[in-house]
Design a binder for these strands. Structure first.
Lengths: 165, 165
DNA sequence: CCCAACTATCTCGACGTCAAGAGACTTCAC
DNA sequence: GTGAAGTCTCTTGACGTCGAGATAGTTGGG
């Protein structure tokens, strides 16, 4: 089956026959698929009355394990947003009762952000919903194909994930 | 080589051993890789003094072929932004002399956005730079692997690209 | 001890996007 | 032809993010 990238590549080959546009076959698909996934996730989370950014923060805390608390700085590095954004997010999640701020007992500059019981439940429910949705999307592929795809993608992500930058 | 998703999946298996988190192996990698690509692209475009959104608009016009003009509405559907955003983008690109607005001769409500000569050159240069960068990222894989990867990704994107929504 | 350098979090202003709707024009059934 | 419905672009206001700087607290060499 043809997709939007096939059309895009065909247009480039017509307009710029001098260029080798083969890289777009892989990387444009990655970007476009990510965009589709963002939209699909937004819908899935909406059923649990969560925004994607809320899910990101709550699940970072959830993955940390009991007692489900991290500093704002640790949350920054996990979610890849800036500090001003994180302050704002924690404020809003606190207002909704999903997290709470505690003073860090070992550093008076610091703060710890802890999941409330409701925050934990909401994160767990939303994760289950997300996985159901993703399984449906991946039903296009066989188990073996999914494994292959994961391995190929890992080869591309590993260099990014294993350098200082 | 291990990547960030391997760590993420391991954390979930520890915290939620009851869930099957296999879908994350594929789709979290897609999302994370897209994020890395966004950053890398921003850097590549900066060498040509272009923002990613500028590249999107200019190359949509470029791909249309001579005389390199489209209506704002056509640009909306290509770039997946809303109309207010597109008005703003066209305004800024006009100020930079990369596109110009022309009245649509066949519909007085309408406008045509046309690439200037400079806009066309900038789009061509930025595309070449982007392809060089993407080739470097894909050098991790053999030609055959790239083909496999493109085919697997097409299977996932095609359903999104070929439905009304 | 003390001070300089460093770290952690929060504050603030600018910016880009979105969503809803207004205004201008076109189309088509009657 | 005329009016209602549809289409196209632009305007507006709210919102979330970023980036730079401010504030408060910590650390370590001398």
């Amino acid at each position: 089956m043809e997709d939007e990238v096939d059309r895009l590549v065909a247009a480039w080959r017509r307009e710029r026959p001098d260029l080798d546009v083969e890289p777009l076959e892989v990387l444009s698909r990655v970007s476009r698929l990510a965009r589709h996934l963002d939209r699909a996730r937004r819908l899935a989370f909406a059923e649990h009355e969560l925004e994607p950014w809320e899910f990101d923060v709550l699940t970072s805390l959830r993955r940390a394990g009991a007692p489900y608390q991290l500093s704002p700085g640790q949350l920054l590095t996990q979610t890849l947003v800036t500090s001003g954004t994180m302050t704002n997010r924690i404020d809003r999640l606190t207002k909704k009762g999903l997290v709470e701020r505690l003073p860090d007992p070992s550093d008076r500059r610091g703060v710890l952000v802890r999941l409330t019981d409701e925050g934990r439940d909401r994160a767990d429910q939303a994760l289950a919903g997300l996985l159901d949705q993703e399984r449906a999307i991946l039903a296009e592929l066989s188990r073996a194909q999914r494994g292959e795809l994961a391995a190929l993608l890992r080869q591309l992500t590993a260099p990014f994930d294993n350098v200082p930058g």
